[in-house]
C-alpha cells in the first residue's frame, strides 16, 4: 500500500529524517514511535505532501495494481488519491460547526460543479443529501451527533481529536495517518480510542499508520512498529521484538 524509500528531510542544518524506509501493507496497522523531535511528524508531513523531501521517494499503491508516486504531488492531490491524516496540534476549522467540519471532508469527492450547487440542481441535491447523511453517520460513530451544531473549538480536547478522525474519514481514505490520536486522553478514553480505531479499520477497510506516545496503545494495536530516534530508524519489527530491542530501550531511557 505505502512504500517509503530512503527518505531524507533536511531543514537547513537539521536533519529531521535521515534515510528512512518503510513498507505498509494493505489492512495493516503500523506504528511509528520515537522520542520527541525524532522526526515522526515530519515523515507524516512528507507523506501527505506538506513538505517536499530533500531526497527519497514515496510510493502509494491503494489497489494493488496502480502505483502512484506521492513525492512531488500537492497535499490535495494526495488526499484525493486516498491518503488522509489528522494533526498532532489539532487543526480543525475552528469557527465552523462540528457538522460543517465533517461535511467539508466530503468536498473532494463532489462531482457537481459550483453552478449546480448554487442552483441546487437535482443531481447536486442528491449528492449533498448523501454527504450530509454520511457526515451525520460519522458523527454518530464518534458520539458527537448531539453537539453537531456547536463550534468545533468549543469541544473538549479529546473530542476534537475524534472529530479530526471523523473529518478525515469523510474523505474516503484508503490509508489513514493518525498523529498522536491519544494525546491528552485519560486511560478510559484511550481504551475507547483503541476500540474505535479497530472498528473503523474494519468498517472502512482502512490501512492505518499511527504515531503515538502511549506505548500501551502502540503495543496493543500495531502489527508492525518503526522506531525513530534523531531522524534515524533504529528498529523495526512486531511489538514483542520492539519491546526487547536494546536500542529502543536505550533511546527511551535516554542512555547512550
Amino acid at each position: 500500500m505505502l512504500r517509503i524509500e530512503n527518505l531524507v528531510m533536511r531543514f537547513g542544518g537539521v536533519v529531521a529524517c535521515n534515510d528512512f524506509s518503510a513498507e505498509i501493507k494493505k489492512g495493516q496497522i503500523v506504528g511509528l514511535i520515537g522520542p520527541n523531535g525524532a522526526g515522526k511528524t515530519t515523515i507524516f508531513n512528507v507523506v501527505t505532501g506538506v513538505y517536499k523531501p530533500t531526497s527519497g521517494q514515496i510510493l502509494f499503491n491503494p489497489t494493488g495494481d496502480q502505483q502512484h508516486r506521492l513525492t512531488g504531488l500537492s497535499p490535495d492531490k494526495i488526499a484525493q488519491l486516498g491518503v488522509c491524516r489528522t494533526f498532532q496540534n489539532i487543526r480543525l476549522f475552528g469557527e465552523l460547526t462540528v457538522l460543517e467540519n465533517v461535511f467539508i471532508g466530503n468536498h473532494l469527492r463532489v462531482k457537481s460543479d459550483v453552478f449546480s450547487t448554487v442552483l441546487r440542481l437535482p443531481h447536486y441535491a442528491a449528492e449533498e443529501k448523501r454527504m450530509y447523511e454520511k457526515s451525520l453517520y460519522l458523527l454518530e460513530k464518534i458520539g458527537l451527533q448531539d453537539t453537531r451544531n456547536e463550534k468545533a473549538t468549543s469541544l473538549p480536547y479529546g473530542m476534537q481529536r475524534r472529530l479530526e478522525i471523523a473529518r478525515a474519514l469523510a474523505t474516503d481514505p484508503k490509508l489513514l495517518l493518525l498523529d498522536e490520536p491519544a494525546a491528552g486522553m485519560n486511560p478510559q478514553e484511550t481504551q475507547d480510542l483503541i476500540q474505535f480505531i479497530r472498528e473503523i479499520k474494519e468498517e472502512f477497510d482502512l490501512t492505518i499508520f499511527l504515531i503515538e506516545h502511549h506505548m500501551d496503545v502502540i503495543m496493543e494495536i500495531s502489527e508492525k512498529i518503526y522506531v525513530l530516534d534523531h531522524g534515524i530508524l533504529i528498529a523495526e519489527g512486531n511489538p514483542s521484538e520492539i519491546q526487547q530491542n536494546q536500542k529502543v530501550v536505550e533511546a527511551y531511557l535516554g542512555v547512550g
Binding site: A79, L92, L96, A168
Partner: peptide, 17 residues
C-alpha cells in the same frame, strides 16, 4: 464550505483534498 475551510486553516483544507 470549502472557501470557509480555506479561511479557517489552509493546511488542514489542503490536507482534506
Amino acid at each position: 464550505k470549502a472557501f470557509l475551510a480555506i479561511r479557517e486553516d489552509e493546511i488542514a483544507a489542503r490536507s482534506m483534498g
